[in-house]
Amino acid sequence: MERIIQQTDYDALSCKLAAISVGYLPSSGLQRLSVDLSKKYTEWHRSYLITLKKFSRRAFGKVDKAMRSSFPVMNYGTYLRTVGIDAAILEFLVANEKVQVVNLGCGSDLRMLPLLQMFPHLAYVDIDYNESVELKNSILRESEILRTSLGLSKEDTAKSPFLIDQERYKLAACDLNDITETTRLLDVCTKREIPTIVISECLLCYMHNNESQLLINTIMSKFSHGLWISYDPIGGSQPNDRFGAIMQSNLKESRNLEMPTLMTYNSKEKYASRWSAAPNVIVNDMWEIFNAQIPESERKRLRSLQFLDELEELKVMQTHYILMKAQW
């Protein structure tokens, strides 16, 4: 199961690369990127893919192929997911001077690169399964522009429990199902009193209910102030809604991937109920975000990139993915 879940990172990566290659991302407006950082955003991701080839031709082939055959409806969804999370992060970063970010199940995500350059007081921790972060470490150190952007050395010479152990950026291995291991890790690489952004982007959906609730509770009690940003699918709660059941069966059949709580937390409200300890919880589905938070100028830009053949399909899909923000 662990390997099957890890491999979903290749899906996330190929989706993001597809959205970048067609021009959906970056969104200099919503991601608040300067001209220089917008250019780098594309270069960093391209370089990550090219460097991946050196470490796993198989993974590269898979990602490269999926990237080339991505449908516009997927590009829209990837765009919404990325800018939705980034906008939430940016809002908190602008409002707080010194912040630490903990990205749970980071996979190949590279959003730390622009953020670390934009916010000089930011500290950032990437955490994932050992195999995932080892690959990420190798790629970050091998690619010249990725290495330079982080100020990394090519060889890892430091004696550290982390794969990357810098003042402001840490990359660490951890099985987030193991709460003892997770707690021990967070004790060493984060500070309790600093306002903390916790990101879980398609992480909790693969965990069992007990483990995910324990992770939420433990982390929320660990940091005195924080913002938890979570992006996940929900099964749907309308009487005739079969999206979730079909999704479970498709994923099980095609790759033996399970989402144990998809139908338990099948609505926005039920999903958000897991953060009931937080005084301020906002949850939207991605269709609401598309309609309420993406300005018309931006939507016009998206329309000019590709013809969207089916808006209703976009709606069906995006009403089954949510973005939850819990502040405490």
Binding site: F71, M74, G77, M247, E253, S254
Partner: peptide, 15 residues
Amino acid sequence: NAIIPTKKSQMDYFL
């Protein structure tokens, strides 16, 4: 027996 009607290795979801 059910045939998975695809040459694609997976269905498109956000994972």
